[in-house]
Structures are given as structure tokens and as C-alpha cells.
Design a protein around this nucleic acid. Sequence first.
DNA 1: ATCAACTCTGAAACTTGTTCTAGATTACCG
DNA 2: CGGTAATCTAGAACAAGTTTCAGAGTTGAT
Lengths: 215, 215
Amino acid sequence: MPAEAKPAAKAAQSPIRAAQPVTPPLTERQEARRRRILHASAQLASRGGFDAVQMREVAESSQVALGTLYRYFPSKVHLLVATMQDQLAHMHGTLRKKPPTGDTAAERVAQTLMRAFRALQREPHLADAMVRALTFADRSVSPEVDQVSRLTTVIILDAMGLDDPTPAQLSAVRVIEHTWHSALITWLSGRASIAQVKIDIETVCRLIDLTSTDD
Amino acid sequence: MPAEAKPAAKAAQSPIRAAQPVTPPLTERQEARRRRILHASAQLASRGGFDAVQMREVAESSQVALGTLYRYFPSKVHLLVATMQDQLAHMHGTLRKKPPTGDTAAERVAQTLMRAFRALQREPHLADAMVRALTFADRSVSPEVDQVSRLTTVIILDAMGLDDPTPAQLSAVRVIEHTWHSALITWLSGRASIAQVKIDIETVCRLIDLTSTDD
DNA sequence: ATCAACTCTGAAACTTGTTCTAGATTACCG
DNA sequence: CGGTAATCTAGAACAAGTTTCAGAGTTGAT
């Protein structure tokens, strides 16, 4: 039978939980390759953003043939979205350890997002690569992008301190995510200042207050 | 002296109103070329979205040499953002004729955006090309993207019926724009339904109500 | 240990965005 | 009208993402 299982098996078409299916377990060497690739990707991205992540260079840096790179990540966008998943998971862990301290849910969410924003500011090129990939992704990357979105939702709900959100609250969270992504883009492309992003985040977080009284 | 003036003169660095500088007036033939190019761009985009707009094809369709195309629009993203400016201006005209009828500012804005959304649904591929270009644009396209953003702001303020918005209101409008762009993207990439987009728009529009009482 | 099936490698080829060049054309000034 | 500087054209060339392929390397089953 197979030797090293196909690393990036296409997600089954289960309409629900399409992403992150029961990935055929990778061998150790495959796991190591995958990790080397993601590391090289993040490293190159940190240098020069989206454009600096060149597939040939990623392959070389991670000691993997170009064809192999494409077997693990079927496109540059897939690679960068996976890189984002990686970083986000890391950040989620960090945030868990120091939960925000605000009095209201809105404050805590704004605090959390600003903390994430400050982390991104430390690696603006990396942020550029990840966010550009995320918004440029077409349908073929939907499962992976969705996974990122789910992770973001969890982070926000955590900050709100909710286990069981109402539909209205979920809508508010979605709008917050929209604002978060789009505000990041305006910042990355130099059309909005850091202060502006802060204001936008704080503004949209007020929506949370609306959902406790309404509906 | 010069024959046909440089069509796509770099915007002066005037920090304010950077885009749309006093473009050296185009000759009639140049204006016609520019128009042919934009038309070809929109046409190809309507067929197959972002990927279908291939620079060689645009050049051929519009009867212009590739080098000329690049002189008018220095990149594919520039071209598509200009295409969006064109379409937006058109839509602004249309919207002006039939202003929204809702009772509250929030309702009117939501109505207006949903009207725009329905227009985009009629040409989903074109929408895809324009929106993807807009969010993928890097700093070199900032002036043009900013112009689009300004136009969008005007449309929203028109719907609100405001001449002289407060800073809080401008923040709300920015957040609405963020939500609008990002919601479009999730719809275009098949991660959100039309109904979902509608809900998100209605949700974010509630922010407008907040600005009349608060602050 | 051997085999079959699969994966990885290295290199070339292909695609499409972008740049460059030499020569033909056009616009405007005097 | 003629001159001249800029524009336009056709086509080659280059860059980076993606695909393809033959052969070498692994893996797990027998």
C-alpha cells in the first residue's frame, strides 16, 4: 500500500466541517517537511511580504523539491493561508494565557484585537503576506480560509466570555471580523494609520453592546 | 513639444487629494483608447472574473499595443481598480436618481448597499475581478484605491442625508465600508450566502443609530 | 528480503504579468 | 509645411507561479 500518505488530501465534500478533515496521518519525515516549509514561508514573508515569498525560494529554503512543495500546498495562496493558520493558532495560545481584563465584552474584544494588532505590527511584512493571501484567496482555498475565520471567531467569542452566543451576537462577531480584516488591509496598504485602525475596532466593538439589550 | 501627453501621469505628492490630479488633458484619440481599454477590461472581467482579465487579451480587444496598455494602466490591478472607479461612478449616478426611501438613516444606507449588492449579483464575475483587485492592491495603487473609497463614502453619506458628518459618524461610515468590502469577499469566494451578506449589512448599519445618541 | 505503490527529486516547460527596444506615427510649434 | 519630441506598435525578453515527467527513494505488506 501507500508509502507516505498524500499530505494534502483534498477535503472530503462533507458540507459541514469541510476543512481539517481526518488528514491521513503524516509520517514523521512528512511532518518535518511540512514544518520546514511553513517556517521558510514565514521567514521569507517576514522579510519582504507577499512578493518575497517565492515558491522556488521556499522550496530551496526548506530543502524540498518544487514539486513536493506543490504537493503539500497546491498554490502560493494555500501556503500563505496555512502559514496564517499556524500563526493564529500560536496567537490563540498566547491570548489564552493572559485573558483581557476589560469590564464589558466590547472592551475585552477591542483589547484582544488591539493586542493581536500590536503583534502584527512587529512583523508588518508577515502580516502583509498573510492578510493579502487571505483576501485574495479564491474558491479553491475556501476550506482553509474558513478555518482561519473559525479560529478568529473562537478568539473573539473567548474574549467576550461566551459559550453559547445568540444569532445576533454571531452577526456582530462576523461584522467585527469583517472590520478587522478590512481595517488591516487599509493599514497595510498605507491608507490608514494605526490610530485609525484602533478607532475602527473600538467603533465596531460597540455593536456588541447592542446585542445584549436588543433582540 | 510633446505629442500626446502622458496619459497616466503619476499623481503629484500633494498629501491631500493625491488621486485624480490635474491629469494632463488627453487628446480625443487617447480618451477613446482609454475608454476602449476600460470597456475590454470590464467585458473580459464579466466573463471569467479576475483571472480572465489577461493583459494581452485586453490589449488585443482594445486594439492597443501591450506597451500602450501599460502606459495607461501601470499594472493589472491599476486597470481593474480604474474599472471599478468607472462602474462606481456609473452606479452613483443611478442611485442619485432614485434615492432610498427608508425612515431612518440606517435603513436608507442598508437599502442603498443592498441595491448595489443586487447590481453586483448581476455580474458576479465582474464583481469578483474588481473587489479582488481592490483588496489585493498594494501601496503603489493607494491613490486610486483611496479614490474608490472616497466615492463609496460619498454614496453612503448621501444615503444618510448628511452634509456635514461628525467624526463619530465618519467612523461608523468607515466601519460600514469595511464590512461591505469584506462581506462581498466572503460572498464572492462562496463562504457566505446572499442572505448572510444582507444580515451583515443590516447589522453594521445599526452603528449609525448609535452615533446620533452617543458622543 | 522482495515487491508494489506511492512519494520525492531535479529539471524543463508552460503561462501570464511586466519590461524593454527599435522603428513607425502623431501632435504641436514656429 | 518641416522639425522634433513624445506616443504608439510589434515583438522579443524576462520573472515568477504552476505543471509535468522520468527516475531515484521510501514505505508497508507479504
